[in-house]
């Protein structure tokens, strides 16, 4: 069963988060990710019903999750339940855990992992072409990656959620910068898991060795702003 992974990449926050997904998650998955210009509604409608997991990263609000250039991907009452039924869904996006997440569960999603307020972090804008090398952003985004890898390793949604939470706490404990520490604690407070904590997906192969050692080439695509 394929994976639906939808990754927006058009401004600083989506570039930063997409860098970590491209570096640590995408090489584990089949088939092609819905990345950048493919992060749109039509490809998602085609891919999602066939998948056991949906991983999405883009801008969002209480009732909506968007893809490239903020095109709507999932909006309350405006999607086919077949796109989400029996799936584990992780949305790295702002506030989607407030209304959209519960709606996805009502429409048959097995588990939903997201956030009930803004997802915030500090990134280094000078590293936009190699976002995976940004240590400031890694404090917040690596716990997300660790949680996703746990899901792809076959762990339950509850275990993956706890791994992400533990990551924020561990990084907050050693973080000296007060703003970065506040962001970590904020994301920790606002992370939610809805639905079945015991939900799990088919185990994916681990990250192939070359990808563990070698980062992707720099991203040269210009950002919107």
């Amino acid at each position: 069963m394929p994976t639906t992974v939808l990754i927006a990449d058009f401004d600083l926050p989506t570039r930063s988060a997409s860098g970590f997904l491209v570096r640590w998650i995408v090489p584990r998955l089949e088939p092609i990710p819905l990345y950048a210009f493919l992060a749109r509604r039509k490809p998602f409608q085609f891919s999602a019903p066939q998948s056991d997991i949906i991983i999405g990263m883009g801008h969002g609000d209480k009732d909506v999750f968007t893809g490239q250039d903020e095109v709507v991907i999932l909006e309350v009452s405006k999607y086919d339940p077949k796109e989400v039924q029996e799936k584990v869904i992780k949305l790295l996006s702002c506030q989607a855990g407030m209304v959209l997440g519960p709606d996805l569960i009502l429409n048959g999603a097995e588990a939903f992992l997201g956030y009930v307020d803004d997802y915030v972090w500090v990134m280094d804008a000078d590293l936009a072409s190699t976002p995976w090398s940004d240590k400031m952003a890694a404090t917040s985004l690596m716990p997300v990656i660790d949680g996703l890898n746990a899901l792809l390793d076959g762990k339950t949604a509850g275990e993956a959620y706890q791994i992400e939470l533990d990551g924020y706490l561990k990084n907050a404990e050693i973080e000296e910068d007060e703003l970065i520490k506040s962001c970590l604690e904020f994301n920790y407070d606002n992370a939610v898991l809805l639905g079945d904590r015991e939900a799990r997906i088919r185990r994916r192969p681990p990250l192939p060795l070359p990808f563990r050692m070698i980062p992707p080439p720099p991203i040269l695509v210009p950002l919107r702003r």
Binding site: D11, L12, P13, H59, D61, S93, D118, M123, A125
Partner: peptide, 20 residues
Amino acid sequence: SKPTLVNLSTRAKTYPNAVP
């Protein structure tokens, strides 16, 4: 470096997604 506070909210919000 150029540390920037970023968020993943939509354009519905009045604040920018990236604030140096």
